[in-house]
Design a protein around this nucleic acid. Structure first.
Lengths: 343, 343
DNA sequence: AGCCTTGTTGTTATCGATAACTCTTGTTGC
DNA sequence: GCAACAAGAGTTATCGATAACAACAAGGCT
């Protein structure tokens, strides 16, 4: 904050370079007609003055802010962080910048956040999940920009979707566990409807268990999201008190799964001998812990990348008839030593 | 993207409510003189039209964008995520919004990012670390806004600082390990100068070891940041091959520390009996793994909160003479079972 | 020669909101 | 009874950039 003199404007650069402001404006966009030497002189003048473009003014005039708004439930989550990375990198080449906000797994907070983000006039908006408050949904529908719902497959999508079936992810795990001969299987987490994705995973669990004719009532709550490792461990402890003969546990995330694993270590329960543990999210921890935990990889980075791609497509042929599209990713089951013996 | 009609403006709301645009503008800021009934009518009109304010235009006119730019090395890091949470929450009440970007631990990337962020005319900027390219530093100095450097204590700060001594964090750990009778202590990670904070931790290690008269040469590289659990495990493995009699290892982060712990489990090395492990960052994993890992808590959330506070102070009395201030936090040593026997 | 095209630059109006000012009307204080 | 002031609303100019159009030179084509 040392220099308190006013920030130079394009007009200042124009004066310094002896051209009109419009020419300066052109010099800063690579595609426009500007003589090479003129451009060089202008960029030199800008450099001398320490000029930095004002994207806000530019956006107002051109009606293109260069923002893509993104909401995620939590910043402190490696899965969502990967999606953000995919988005940021996918949008970079088009000069689009991610404007991020988090909802703390709260739909009211999402509504507030979406309103705030829309005041920035983003060119597109990416939201996590397919469930929103009524007002929030209305705002998204009327925003007049591409809307992408991710990490889910909403039954009644607003616009485009880049997601996967959380229920199917659970189903894959259940079928795998059953194939290893286990039938007394419990589910840990995903109890509240705040984390709709966790809730879907739980529903996928009960549905699949019922379809296969097994007891689908071993459900343990672990508190509101985000569910920490500690909460996973505590929930597992309660689970074992209530149903001591449980043979396997499907956890709403790898973090809860790892918590369960540590509890097994403390209780002296052999994994996978006495207890199989499966998680979700393909977090690094699930791959490196001892034993590594069977998990499902939802391809978080891909979700971001594909969303970015979709946005770029939608923005480029904005005139053409836009058919709302669904991109459905296939989660990948990663079978690891926590559910199969490594002998 | 269903409705393609133009987004309503303040003038539309004014027409709908039968007042002038200026009155609408006033109605949206709580402090201005507007008759209660007029305001109610205006807000109702806005609601009817689905009007959402254009912050970009507002910012251009009032010269207050409501943005605070923030750069962090990586989004996928619980420590920085906590700092972001602290910032976001601290700034919320003043209506300031965090505009986030990540540098991938790369100073050139930081320069590019800072330039991009400054085009959004933030009212303040928070950067992680005290090392920047020359151009980046110049941009920050000339931006004419408060600059806060965090997570570090630069020798030549640009403006304000909210940080802690990474070197001292290592020193605390070394002194603790020595107090438990160990002297053959190694350091894992922090090798490149890309992660300057990790590098500082390593320097703090060597300096303290030398001061105490012990061998400070057991340094193992773990590749460029961010260092994963896997890389921590691999580095630990190499470490044990090179110096098999090592009694303790100080890791650049808890993630690397946990990697080392898993390697001990695989190799059958008893922790803390044969090997003590210490990390950094107070990540949840260090608290819940078996045994829990001794760590240092840098109070990430506090860093964000205090930075937000500092920004609010600087923005409120912008006229007054601003003395550049340093806020130095005291990292907290968390002694856990990975370095002390729990008998 | 006259016309069209391409390259290069300038002029004017405008994006959507707000600062600063003006203008009323009603109220308070002495 | 009148200055002084607060409340409430309107008018005008402006923030910093760009779209759209205009202007003009140089060169190619018919």
């Amino acid at each position: 904050m040392k220099s308190s003199r006013k920030t130079p404007t394009m007009a200042d650069v124009a004066r310094e370079a002896g051209v009109s402001p419009m020419t300066v404006s052109r010099a800063f966009k690579s595609d426009a007609y500007v003589n090479d030497e003129t451009r060089k002189a202008i960029l030199a003048a800008a450099e001398r003055l320490g000029y930095v473009m004002d994207s806000m003014a530019s956006g107002l005039s051109s009606r293109k802010t260069g923002f893509v708004a993104v909401t995620i439930p939590s910043v402190n989550n490696a899965n969502f962080a990967d999606t953000i990375r995919g988005l940021t990198e996918g949008l970079q080449e088009k000069g689009l910048q991610v404007l991020l906000g988090y909802t703390s797994y709260n739909l009211e907070e999402e509504e507030r956040l979406v309103r705030q983000l829309l005041t920035r006039r983003p060119e597109a908006i990416v939201v996590t999940g397919g469930k929103h408050t009524e007002k929030c949904r209305a705002m998204l529908e009327n925003a007049g920009i591409p809307v992408i719902e991710t990490w889910d497959i909403p039954s009644d999508p607003i616009d485009s979707v880049v997601g996967f079936s959380n229920a199917e992810a659970s189903a894959m795990i259940v079928r795998h566990l059953v194939s290893t001969g286990r039938t007394k299987i419990a589910f840990l987490g995903g109890d509240t409807s705040r984390d709709t994705r966790g809730f879907d995973r739980r529903r996928g669990f009960t549905r699949t268990m019922e379809q296969l004719g097994f007891d689908a009532t071993r459900l343990t709550e672990a508190g509101p999201p985000p569910i920490s490792m500690r909460e996973g461990a505590d929930a597992f402890s309660r689970l074992m008190q209530k149903w001591p003969d449980t043979e396997a546990v499907v956890c709403v995330s790898d973090l809860a799964g790892f918590g369960a694993l540590t509890e097994c270590q403390r209780l002296g329960i052999d994994v996978p001998g006495k207890m199989a543990i499966a998680g979700f999210g393909a977090y690094e921890i699930s791959d490196i812990c001892v034993p590594p935990i069977t998990s499902v990889d939802p391809h978080c980075y891909q979700i971001g990348m594909l969303s970015a791609q979709r946005i770029i497509d939608l923005l480029s042929d904005a005139d053409e008839e836009t058919t709302t599209s669904q991109t459905v990713l296939e989660p990948e089951l990663l079978i690891r030593a926590s559910t199969v013996s490594t002998s």
